[in-house]
Amino acid sequence: MNVKINGQWMTIHGQTVYDLLESHGLEAKPVVVEADGVILVPSQWKTTQLSEGMILEVVHLVAGG
């Protein structure tokens, strides 16, 4: 299925948001996920199913003033 992650379309094989994060080594990192405009808390990562055309943002804190 195809989802858009951080502005890029990707073909992915996992079923849940957690699977997607795990495939990038992010499941234990302090990241925030927004799926179709809704912010997910980490406990929702395993229960949120990915769907065709889903728009995901995966963000984190970086250096800044």
Partner: peptide, 14 residues
Amino acid sequence: ALRRVQLEAVDEDA
């Protein structure tokens, strides 16, 4: 600041 994670280098900016 808050930015997108670089999926190819996830620890790069953390």
